[in-house]
Each structure stands twice: as structure tokens, then as C-alpha cells.
């Protein structure tokens, strides 16, 4: 059997018209089935990647089951709403000292060293520094569809002259969303995994900073929203800083 890949390089095969009928029929069959597969797959890919619309609402589940998991993709980074804030992750720890007494440390900033690391190795960076920013991204994740609904509802409420309520649980529970909409299942999954990740990462760093006596860690998420573009040069508008403290978490190792 000839090597199927041993095509004369940069060369054409002899014209198909001169090939025996069997070859011609088989080639045509292969082309038709390939074309069919290609069309279906990219129709799916196209619909899958659209913003939410009536067609997607109708066939979205079918499309997703075709695409997942191996062709899953997401191209709405920075859109429709680009990230407009800096995020920081701080950790403090409950440490048992040599005298068996427990003390609580002050907060240690994990983001600045990670950023410095990324800047120093800018041109071929290790992705190690993405652990911190990735954790923050997961902790602050908002389902894009839920976000659209929330924003629309908030706008409607504002238009009716009512202020949108922002409810924030006591010891930093999941934010209830602008108009009191509960988190979606995707947001809950993200949050749960993000907490485990945050504990791991914070425990590693806390142990490095505060020694092996670390028993529990608490993560503080700081968000610094930038002033709007038109107010970028006003010295009295440096943006808005908010923070959220996650519950204390027992060190896993």
C-alpha cells in the first residue's frame, strides 16, 4: 500500500478526470460527507458563539451539547463590559506560636509580588503569577447572562425612581446581586471552587510569610474601580475602593 502522505511535495495529483471511475466516485463521496460535517460543525460553532438571541435561546442546549467539552470556547473577554478595576488579594492568618498562644497576623498583600513577578518576566512569563489574578477572577465571576438581566433590572428600577437594593451578606457571603437576584448555578460552582483555590493559595503564602504555625487563613478581596474616562485627570477622583473579607478557612495541610 502506498504511503497516503507521500504526496509529491508542492505538486498536484494528475487530473481527477483521468482517474478510474471508482476513484472519482469515492472522492466525490468523501467530499460530500466532509462538506456536510464541516457545515454542521461550523453552524454550531457560529451559533454557540453568538450573544444571547432568539435563535440561541431556542437551540442553545443542542448546540452546547455538540460543542462541549472539546470545542468549548468563550470570546467575550473584555466585552460587552471591559474590566474596569484593579483587584487585589490579601491574606492574614491565625498562627499558633511556640507558646501555644494563638494570634492573628496583619494582612499580607499577595497581588503586588505576583504583579512584580509578571512585569519582571514580561517577555516570556511563567504563568505562576496568574494564580493570584485567576483566583480573583473566579471569586468575582459574574454569569454574563445573569449580569445582563441584573443590569437591565437595575436600569428599570432606577427609571421608576427606585434605588436598586444591594444586599451583601454578613461575613462576606455570596453577593446577592444588584436587584436581589440570587446567584446562578454557574456562579455558585465558580464560587465554591474559587474558595477552595483561594484557601490553598492563601495557606501556601501564609505559611511562607508567617511560618508553620498557621492554622487558618482569611482572604480579603480588594477592588479599586477606576474613575470614568472623562474624570481620569481629576485629582479628587481616584476611583472607588471596596473590599470583601472571605470567611476564615482552616488550612488544608
Amino acid at each position: 500500500m502506498p504511503d497516503l502522505d507521500a504526496l509529491p511535495l508542492m505538486n498536484r495529483l494528475p487530473p481527477l478526470a483521468n482517474a478510474p471511475p471508482r476513484v472519482r466516485i469515492l472522492t466525490a463521496c468523501a467530499a460530500v460527507s466532509l462538506l456536510g460535517l464541516f457545515t454542521v460543525h461550523f453552524a454550531m460553532t457560529f451559533v454557540y458563539n453568538q450573544p444571547l438571541n432568539p435563535v440561541k435561546l431556542r437551540v442553545g442546549d443542542t448546540v452546547a451539547s455538540w460543542m462541549h467539552p472539546y470545542f468549548a470556547q468563550n470570546w467575550n473577554l473584555f466585552a460587552p463590559k471591559p474590566i474596569n478595576e484593579n483587584r487585589g488579594m490579601l491574606v492574614r492568618a491565625r498562627v499558633r506560636g511556640a507558646d501555644r498562644r494563638v494570634r492573628v497576623t496583619s494582612f499580607y498583600d499577595m497581588t503586588t509580588p505576583a504583579n512584580r513577578d509578571a512585569q519582571e518576566r514580561r517577555w516570556w512569563p511563567s504563568r505562576r503569577s496568574r494564580l493570584v489574578s485567576g483566583t480573583l477572577q473566579m471569586l468575582t465571576y459574574e454569569d454574563p447572562v445573569a449580569l445582563t438581566i441584573k443590569e437591565t433590572r437595575t436600569r428599570l428600577l432606577r427609571e421608576r425612581g427606585r434605588r436598586a437594593r444591594t444586599t451583601s451578606g454578613p461575613d462576606g457571603q455570596v453577593e446577592q446581586g444588584l436587584a436581589g437576584i440570587p446567584p446562578t448555578s454557574a456562579e455558585r460552582d465558580y464560587r465554591r471552587r474559587a474558595m477552595i483555590l483561594a484557601e490553598r493559595l492563601a495557606s501556601l503564602e501564609a505559611t511562607r510569610q508567617f511560618g508553620d504555625g498557621v492554622e487558618a487563613v482569611q482572604v480579603r478581596v480588594v477592588r479599586h474601580a477606576f474613575p470614568r474616562f472623562s474624570r481620569r485627570d481629576l485629582s479628587d477622583d481616584t476611583g472607588k475602593v471596596t473590599f470583601e473579607d472571605l470567611p476564615w478557612m482552616v488550612r488544608s495541610r
Binding site: M1, P2, D5, A6, P8, L34
Partner: peptide, 21 residues
């Protein structure tokens, strides 16, 4: 591959179609 005999049957054509697709 340079030395190997080139196929020009249906198999080789199918592989070529696949490549372009």
C-alpha cells in the same frame, strides 16, 4: 517521505481533502 512512492488513489485524495478541510 521524500523517497516513498506517491499514492494517487482514492485514499490519497481523501487525505488531501481532509487536509484542506
Amino acid at each position: 517521505r521524500r523517497g516513498a512512492p506517491a499514492g494517487d488513489g482514492a485514499g490519497s485524495r481523501a487525505v488531501t481533502l481532509l487536509h484542506n478541510a
